[in-house]
Each structure stands twice: as structure tokens, then as C-alpha cells.
């Protein structure tokens, strides 16, 4: 499972940076090595030298590699108690008084959190006028999100989660099967804006009400976590909510003066004035 050493992993990171200018040095090493080993196994590549050569020579392979090395967004409705809280408490408070507030999902990979919120908004009705947007690393990932493919294990986990979130309702109403594969219905993303990462000067605007950044930081090393958190909190306006993964902790970065904790259990925070 860990057939790639730290030294070899760092060589791959340097190769990619040198060839494409993509900096992966902020990734958490243990899970990066695990994914590297898996990619090499599924691509039938025997050594990291061969992997480095293939990455340098084959841009299409490189783009697939970036997509594979980027961990998918969590399954839909992962941590159902969070989604129940959003539906019953946070969204009514946050969205009702505003016109077209924005909810952002940075660094999306599969878009499953985005789809979850789209489902939730469809279910709670027309009173809510919300702009949903997501960012992603490259066009291949964007196309993947837009396609809405839901592989079986994602479907099963998402369905199980949804049934806790909304017992008695049918998750399959939001999916369709085409040529034997299951997809999320395209209308869920109607009006949703998906853009490439780094094309904005600032991620957030005055309209941004909530930033979803769940289970993204676990794939970053501590230095990268600090940089991302500082940047995101710096971008947010006062009052913007910020949601991280249930097992992600942000209190150790010396940035506590920038946010208030809304729910320590569900990891919901709110930006406050720095003073």
C-alpha cells in the first residue's frame, strides 16, 4: 500500500512542478503516497522513474493524474447531522433575509457536496434564491463535475446518508441511469457556476454567505493548511460562514481572532472583524 517512499514522492512532486508549474508540495504526505501507490498500481507503472517519465511526456496522462491525485469531495450528505442542521437552522437564518446570497465550494473534485446542497435547496423550496458556485483545478475535473457521474460506492454511501438526512424520501429521484451508469440529474446544477481555481482575485465577495471547505484540509500539510485558512478567512467578509470537516481542527493556527465558532461539533464558523 505504501510502495512509494517519501523521497520518491518528493521526486514526483518536483517533476510535476518543473514540467507543468503545478505545486503539490503542500499535500499531506501519508495520503499522497497512498494515492501515488494506487495510481501506479492501476496504471500498471512499476517504478516512480517510469511514472515521472510518463508525466513529463504525456500531458493527457498528467491531467488524469491530477484528477486522480485530487481526493474526491465527500460522499453526498456525508455527516447527515450537519445537513439537517443546515436545513433546519443555518440556511433559514442565513438565506432568507438576503437576495441571491452566494454559497461557494472551493477545490471541488467530484462536486458531491455541491450536489447535496442543490438537492437540499430544491427540497426546501422556492423561497430561497441562492447562487451556488464551485471552483476546481482543471477543465477535466470541471467536466467530471458537470457530468454528475455517481459510481456505485458513491451512490450507495450517498443514498445511505440521504436516508438519514431525509427519511422516507427517495434519493434515486435525483439520479438517472444512462448506458448502465448512474448520474445525478443535470437540472440540479442549473444556474450553478463552476470556474477554474485561481481565476479569481478573491474567492469571496460581499454576497458570499457560506464557504464549504469540508475534508479538504486533511489532504494538506500543516503549512499549506495555515496558508489556505489564512487566505480564505482573509477573503471572507464579516458574517460569512465557514464549514470544515468534522475531524478537521482549525483552532491551532493562531487565527482564532478571525472567526467565531458557531458549532464546534459540526465545525461551523463565522468570520468576524479582525479587531
Amino acid at each position: 500500500m505504501f510502495s512509494v517512499s517519501i523521497l520518491e514522492a518528493k521526486t514526483i512532486i518536483r517533476t510535476i512542478d518543473k514540467t507543468y508549474g503545478t505545486d503539490l508540495s503542500g499535500l499531506a504526505m501519508a495520503s499522497f503516497r497512498l494515492r501515488l501507490s494506487e495510481i501506479m498500481q492501476t496504471s500498471k507503472i512499476d517504478s516512480t522513474e517510469d511514472l515521472a517519465a510518463r508525466l513529463m511526456d504525456d500531458k493527457t496522462f498528467y491531467e488524469t493524474f491530477i484528477s486522480d491525485i485530487s481526493i474526491g469531495s465527500p460522499d453526498m450528505f456525508r455527516d447527515p447531522d450537519l445537513w439537517i442542521y443546515l436545513r433546519d437552522h443555518l440556511l433559514p437564518t442565513v438565506l432568507k433575509p438576503r437576495i441571491y446570497p452566494e454559497i461557494i465550494f472551493p477545490e471541488s473534485v467530484t462536486g458531491h457536496e455541491l450536489f447535496s446542497l442543490a438537492v437540499l435547496l430544491q427540497e426546501i423550496g422556492k423561497d430561497y434564491r441562492v447562487d451556488l458556485s464551485a471552483t476546481c483545478y482543471n477543465q477535466k475535473i470541471m467536466n467530471h463535475i458537470l457530468a454528475g457521474e455517481l459510481p456505485y460506492y458513491n451512490f450507495k454511501n450517498s443514498k445511505d446518508n440521504y436516508e438519514v438526512f431525509n427519511p422516507g424520501s427517495n434519493f434515486e429521484d435525483y439520479t438517472e441511469t444512462r448506458e448502465g451508469n448512474r448520474y445525478l440529474k443535470p437540472n440540479l446544477l442549473q444556474g450553478v457556476e463552476i470556474r477554474l481555481q485561481g481565476t479569481d482575485k478573491n474567492l469571496c465577495s460581499e454576497k458570499t454567505a457560506i464557504v464549504f471547505y469540508r475534508n479538504r484540509m486533511i489532504y494538506q500539510n500543516a503549512e499549506m493548511q495555515y496558508r489556505m485558512l489564512k487566505q480564505l478567512l482573509g477573503d471572507m467578509k464579516k458574517g460569512t460562514y465557514f464549514i470544515t470537516g468534522i475531524q478537521e481542527a482549525i483552532d491551532g493556527f493562531g487565527l482564532v481572532h478571525l472567526y467565531e465558532t458557531v458549532s464546534s461539533d459540526l465545525k461551523i464558523y463565522q468570520k468576524k472583524d479582525a479587531n
Binding site: A30, S31, G72, P74, N215
Partner: peptide, 8 residues
């Protein structure tokens, strides 16, 4: 500790 949500 390093946690991960990679597929089961």
C-alpha cells in the same frame, strides 16, 4: 495523525 476520506 492523518485522516482521509478516500474511498472505502
Amino acid at each position: 495523525i492523518a485522516l482521509s476520506t478516500e474511498h472505502p
